[in-house]
Design a protein around this nucleic acid. Structure first.
Length: 747
DNA sequence: CGGGTCTAGAGG
DNA sequence: CTCTAGACCCGG
């Protein structure tokens, strides 16, 4: 059997199967079959698209023959396949589905139960290349008699302007389809179909700019990155810098060096931060091709951007999570901006973390990887402290302005007050001085729960173990986990008493109270309920930027990505909702949130101030955030985690089971937990199984979800158990198992 | 995943 | 005895 032109190929199919399949290639396609190309293969009684992984040998089994070979060139390289294989094994997800997720959506062909009822069924799907028609005057057409009227105008234009598209001709001459047809018949013009890209940002040209001068911290950081680039080996960095410390300028100048070396760069940003402003900053700086990948693109636009990248027409790719799979070759650098952001995690299907894959891809490619943030993940900090990442610090803000002073207000014994008096006074004072105020509360809706004074009944979601939040505008009680909703009852559903009370403050109620209290102020609310629909964010942000808003009330989304230069007062109404989440990361999350909010204030000429109402003013996450003491926070958090046996000192995986009925999903989670306990006993390892966890049964898009946590003292013990489980445990039908491995020790 | 087959329970 | 919903099994 010849190895490189074998007639047997190994194929991965995008289905939840943990095996690959072998097929025979007919002689006429033999030389063309190559890893990375797709094939149409008979699969059971269907025809599906698969991916060629490589060549195989005859194992004596009866093999079926491929139906067709797709793609003129491979869609992925062997290096990319190495990344896919790593991800499939690490996230315990079928390789075919990993490849499908890595390639642009909608390109695969599947057979359907065809209504026309042909034997193979009809083939559907496949993303097409868009073409446009261009016209040009035919060579040597001068002698022939010229037509009259519109035809003459068109011909004159084409002789002068050369090739012109249908769209341009229509713009210039109106509808001209029939004269053009006539000209073609007379052989006076010729036409050609040309491939075009659906350009997601066909914007007007931007003014080029040049590199900004760097401060000492930036220059030192850039110097270290530059020497790693010159060495041309994998080098991971943690770039630590507060909001406004000029991380982006460091990325830009480092990437300039990468481009100058003839290499390419990949920039990952959280979805929400992928604004035209950021992209334009890159477009102003670089003349080379820039491709942008984000969730707002249509399948066609995404496919076109992908093809531009694959053909080497883009040198820099900027994108959200899924851009980690962008088909760049000669990759010199990967930037992961705001590396702590949870939006790098894909939470459905193939559950990967693009921040982690960035390190793996960087290692495979021999590239530098920069993780940039003011508030790293605790695991990232630990990796830097133990020398696995090189720490680069940007200690000061570029404009020299210090971070605004922050203070904690003790809210104990003052329940029922929306704003404590120092914060209320600060808002009034800020209004007097025409400053803008940001009030943060991480809870949308009017009130968090309804309780009965008589019998103590609390409204809860029947699917999820959480209370229903009252929304005044809809007059409904809604589950924020699964969107289950009921109309607001007038009496207690438990005992019929009329004595029901709404408790727990939400943004909707804060908005109402602020309008009552400051009737002259222009109040806006920014949360999922007010930003629904496209352009919802932009509308609110524009009014804030134009100073048409005095008080902005917002949830989580105001802490991320957006710049509010006019904000001179930040009030945090409660951090308890973030602090009291029963998750070992709640301290970390709260520290990140508060630190990011402090960075939102005083980006202008006034440093502003930050006031935080809390019931736990001694909590280390808050005291360190308020003091700007990053080292102190991480030291305390790591000591706590070491004692409690949490990551990064133990390793953790989360199993998610989803099914369509709550009882079946719950029963399955018991079965899985029992199975895992058996495996643990058999292995004799020190692996701890937490669960099935009571709270998180949640309905997501019609499916119920249950989770189980696994803790292990090291990664290999955890992975041995996970792999063993994957081989020995089969979920019952209708139930799917997903695995989130968190966190990781990749190096 | 999708579809074929096998099976238990309800209905006639 | 027939019909059907759901479990289960397989795909090269």
């Amino acid at each position: 059997m010849k190895d490189s032109h074998s007639n047997i190929i190994e194929v991965a199919v995008p289905l939840p199967l943990d095996t690959t399949f072998h097929y025979r290639v007919p002689p006429e396609l033999r030389g063309a079959a190559a890893p990375g190309r797709r094939v149409l293969v008979p699969f059971g009684r269907r025809t599906v698209t698969g991916y060629i992984l490589g060549f195989g040998t005859d194992e004596g089994r009866e093999l079926r023959t491929i139906v067709d070979l797709l793609d003129e060139a491979p869609l992925f390289t062997l290096r990319e396949l190495e990344l896919y294989r790593w991800a499939a094994s690490y996230y315990l997800h079928p390789l075919g589905e990993v490849i499908k997720a890595a390639l642009p959506a909608g390109i695969n062909i599947q057979s359907r139960r065809g209504s026309t009822g042909h034997s193979g069924g009809e083939l559907t799907g496949g993303r097409s290349v868009r073409t446009e028609t261009v016209y040009r005057a035919a060579a040597g057409a001068m002698e022939r008699p010229a037509p009259r009227g519109k035809g003459a105008q068109l011909l004159a234009h084409l002789r002068q302007a050369g090739e012109t598209t249908t769209a341009t001709l229509r713009e210039l001459f109106g509808d001209c389809a029939s004269p053009l047809r006539r000209l073609r018949e007379l052989d006076l013009v010729e036409s050609e179909a040309r491939e075009v890209y659906r350009d997601p940002f066909r914007e007007e040209a931007v003014e080029p700019d040049s590199p900004l001068p760097l401060n000492a911290g930036q220059a030192a950081a850039l110097g270290q990155i530059a020497s790693a680039l010159d060495a041309g080996r994998f080098a991971p960095f943690l770039l630590l810098g507060v909001t406004g410390s000029g991380k982006t300028e460091v990325y830009l100048q480092a990437i300039a060096r990468v481009v100058a070396q003839g290499q390419t760069a990949l920039v990952l940003v959280p979805e929400i931060a992928l604004t035209p402003q950021l992209v334009n900053r890159f477009r102003r700086r670089f003349q080379c091709g820039i491709a942008v990948l984000h969730s707002g693109l249509s399948d066609g636009e995404r496919y076109d951007e992908w093809r531009r990248i694959r053909r080497g027409e883009a040198t820099i790719v900027i994108g959200a999570r899924s851009a980690i799979f962008a088909p760049l070759e000669r990759l010199g650098m990967i930037v992961v901006d705001e590396e702590h952001e949870s939006s790098y995690k894909q939470g459905e299907g193939f559950r990967y973390n693009a921040r982690d894959l960035a390190l793996v891809r960087g290692k495979i490619a021999g590239a530098s990887v920069i993780l940039g943030t003011a508030t790293p993940q605790v695991t990232t900090w630990h990796a830097a402290a133990s020398g696995k990442l090189t720490l680069l610090e940007l200690p000061e803000r570029v404009n020299g302005m210090p971070l605004p002073p922050a203070e904690l207000l003790d809210a104990r014994g003052q329940r029922g007050e929306t704003l404590l008096s120092p914060l209320a006074a600060a808002v009034a004072d800020n209004l007097d001085r025409s400053g803008q105020t940001l009030l943060f509360l991480n809870r949308r809706g009017f009130a968090t729960w309804l309780t009965c004074e008589e019998c103590g009944h609390v409204l809860r979601c029947p699917n999820c173990a959480v209370t229903l939040t009252y929304h005044q505008r809809k007059n409904r009680h809604i589950c924020h986990y699964c969107d289950y909703a009921i109309p607001a009852p007038s009496v207690c559903p438990g005992c019929g008493s009329g004595q029901v009370t709404l408790l727990g403050l939400g943004t909707e109620q804060v908005e109402m109270r602020m309008r009552e209290r400051f009737p002259e102020a222009r109040v806006e609310r920014m949360d999922r309920d007010t930003t629904a629909g496209k352009g919802g964010h932009a509308r609110i942000l524009r009014r804030v930027a134009e100073r048409k808003t005095d008080i902005l009330i917002g949830t989580q989304m105001v802490a991320k990505g957006h710049d509010f230069p006019g904000i001179t007062l930040v009030g945090i109404l409660s951090v308890e909702s973030s602090l009291n989440i029963p998750d070992y990361r709640s301290g970390e999350r709260t520290f990140q949130l508060v630190t990011q909010l402090i960075g939102r204030a005083g980006r202008g000429e006034n440093p502003g101030r930050v006031l935080i109402q809390t019931l736990t003013p001694e909590h280390y996450a808050l005291t360190h955030a308020v003091a700007g003491d990053i080292e102190g926070f991480y030291a305390t958090e790591l000591a706590f985690r070491r004692d409690a046996g949490y990551p990064p000192f133990t390793y953790l995986a989360v199993f998610y089971l989803t099914g369509t009925s709550p009882s079946a999903t719950e029963a399955e989670s018991d079965r899985l937990a029992a199975h895992l306990r058996d495996l643990r006993a058999e292995q004799g390892g020190r692996i701890e199984i937490l669960g099935p966890v009571a709270a998180p049964l949640a309905k997501l898009r019609g499916r119920f979800r249950w989770q189980i946590l696994l803790k292990a003292p090291n990664r290999s013990a955890l992975h041995r158990l996970l792999l063993r489980n994957q081989r020995t445990y089969a979920p019952s039908s209708g139930i799917r198992l997903h695995v989130d491995v968190d966190p990781v020790d990749l190096m």
